[in-house]
């Protein structure tokens, strides 16, 4: 069987900070493999049987190769890096279109297309389902567990209020719902053999898309303005040495509310 796993390289938002003017400090923030994707990949690697192949792919700048290298170290077999200046600035639609074109050209026969729930920098989690619609296949979101049997896969999906168990036909899109807070451990043999595996670069022309189908030009949404967050509140910081006094503060707030 063949699994195709889509991943993304993201800045580590946990490490991101805001300076005194409220602007985002991005310098020196390390780029990591999106933890949700890492989790999805680890699940797939856990299911892999003899003779199965795990292909990973990502769209991003040339340095996104690092994220793919990490996937190979985890045990993926092959990696594709979709990189082209024209891909820059893509919104959900343009990203999905690019990934779909890639899938049709390079991994049209995968048994499952696997995604993480969302990327920690964009937080939208929309790409898997746009890809599913463009491929014309079924989609399985918030998957908690996936098992394979002779006649295909079975997924358990967690919708919060209900838990749904479905049969997953071959070629479907699966998006895992969770993330492993402790990261994943990989075997030393996979780690060592990663050096011999290659990352293949793919550009716009090789997936057969026009200039106006990808990136910023191919996007259906446009950012008209940005401002740094107004989410910060007028903060009053108090250092508390006496817990009774601290509790008093909160209780007076509670009473003020009534």
């Amino acid at each position: 069987m063949r699994f195709a796993v889509a991943v993304k390289q993201v800045p580590d938002t946990m490490e991101m900070s805001v300076d005194e003017n409220g602007s985002l400090v991005r310098a020196g923030v390390p780029a990591i493999l999106n933890p949700y994707d890492e989790y999805a990949l680890s699940k797939v690697l856990g299911m892999r049987g003899e003779g199965d192949e795990v292909v990973v792919f990502t769209m991003g700048p040339p340095q996104a190769r690092q994220a793919l290298t990490r996937c190979l170290e985890m045990g993926a077999d092959r990696a594709y890096l979709l990189t082209d200046r024209d891909f820059a600035g893509a919104d959900v639609w343009a990203t999905a279109r690019t990934l779909t074109a890639f899938i049709m050209r390079f991994v049209p026969d995968a048994d499952l297309y696997v995604f993480g729930r969302q990327a920690i920098d964009g937080d939208t989690g929309q790409v898997p389902f746009e890809v599913a619609a463009q491929l014309g296949v079924q989609q399985f979101a918030y998957v908690e567990s996936l098992s394979s049997s002779e006649d295909g896969f079975t997924a358990v999906q967690d919708y919060g209020d209900v838990s749904m168990t479905c049969r997953v036909p071959r070629g479907s899109v699966v998006s895992f719902g969770a993330v492993d807070p402790n990261g994943t451990l990989f075997s030393i043999s996979d780690y060592l053999s990663a050096g011999s595996k290659t990352v293949e670069e793919v550009d716009r022309v090789s997936i057969g898309l026009g200039l106006y189908s990808v990136g910023l030009r191919g996007s259906m949404t446009k950012i008209v303005s940005t401002k740094t967050s107004s989410g910060a509140r007028r903060n009053r910081k108090v250092e508390i040495t006496d817990p009774a006094k601290g509790a008093g503060f909160i209780i007076s707030e509670l009473e003020a509310m009534r």
């Binding site: 800045p11 938002t13 991101m16 805001v18 985002l24 920690i120 920098d121 964009g122 937080d123 950012i223 303005s225 940005t226 401002k227 740094t228 967050s229 107004s230 989410g231």
Partner: peptide, 8 residues
Amino acid sequence: AFGGNIIA
């Protein structure tokens, strides 16, 4: 975006 640090 970016974890609420930017509003677009």
